[in-house]
């Protein structure tokens, strides 16, 4: 598949632009790991219709990953392919937030994780559309439509499960409570972030925080759920310090590339 943004990629990047490269990986790894998690569910959803919907989300995310990584290969300019970047890094080199690697404990966790990420993701992409980097803003323009739908889909489901039966309310609340600890990290800045913000390329995520919690709270209230009060958060993903789950995700994601190195598929 051709990268639709091929024409926007400047050939002049070298690895000296390491900040940009790391910045892109930070964005793309979130979609990669979340897409992988959603892909695990294909064929195992609560109904055929929801199964198809969740697979669509996974497909959107992997499409985004490919756009970002194809851009990253140009910036790296060292002959690595999108698959090398996606599948041949070490554990500590993956920069996704801890939230997206949390497991599909049950459908409430799957949708809770999606919802807590989607609201952030949408706000982030709306800002990235204004990036002075034309490739990134073009990717954001495409992704923002996909993610608007994801946010709508997951918000609707939070309301259904929150304001459904007693059992579903309990399960949904438990999932939100557990996943809450991973929300704060979304708004942490890395060094690459700061450098990219300074250049007008990156998004200042610290500015998205208040609105994020406001929007999340609105949906949770409508879903008759409690907004968790806990002030204890987990972090580390952006520095490559992950939960124990990531190793297993990578074991599957990387299996073929590791077991059969240097081959075409």
């Amino acid at each position: 598949m051709l990268n639709p943004f091929q024409h926007l990629i400047k050939k002049s990047y070298t690895m000296k632009n390491e900040n940009l490269y790391n910045y892109i990986l930070g964005i793309a790894d979130n979609s990669l790991i979340l897409g992988q998690r959603m892909g695990e569910l294909c064929g195992h959803g609560p109904s055929l219709e929801t199964d198809i919907a969740c697979t669509n989300i996974s497909l959107d995310l992997f499409g985004q990953v490919r756009s970002y990584f194809q851009y990253a290969t140009k910036i790296a300019g060292d002959g690595r392919s999108e698959d090398d970047i996606a599948m041949l890094r070490q554990e500590r080199e993956y920069k996704n937030v801890l939230l997206v690697e949390q497991p599909n404990t049950n459908f409430a966790y799957t949708l809770g994780r999606q919802f807590l990420f989607d609201i952030y993701h949408l706000a982030f992409l709306k800002e990235l559309q204004k990036s002075t980097d034309l490739t990134l803003s073009a990717i954001a323009n495409k992704c923002v439509k996909e993610v608007s739908y994801h946010a709508r889909f997951s918000s609707d489901w939070i309301k259904r499960l929150g304001d459904g039966t007693d059992e579903s309310k309990e399960k949904m609340q438990e999932a939100i409570n557990d996943l809450w600890a991973y929300t704060d990290e979304l708004f942490h800045q890395t060094d690459a972030d700061k450098a990219m913000v300074a250049e007008g390329i990156g998004v200042d995520v610290t500015k998205l925080k208040d609105n994020y919690y406001r929007e999340i709270s609105q949906v949770l209230e409508e879903a008759t759920l409690q907004v968790p009060g806990s002030k204890y958060f987990q972090k580390g993903g952006k520095q490559g310090i992950h939960t124990e789950h990531l190793g297993y995700i990578l074991a599957e994601l990387q299996y073929m590339q590791r077991a059969y190195p240097n081959m075409e598929w």
Binding site: G43, T55, E252, L253, W265
Partner: peptide, 26 residues
Amino acid sequence: WITRAPSLRRKVALLAKVQDEAGHGL
């Protein structure tokens, strides 16, 4: 094999195919 597909291109194609099967069942 979705989570273990050897490349991103193969992964999206396989996901889309398995999804189609859900659609066809439907």
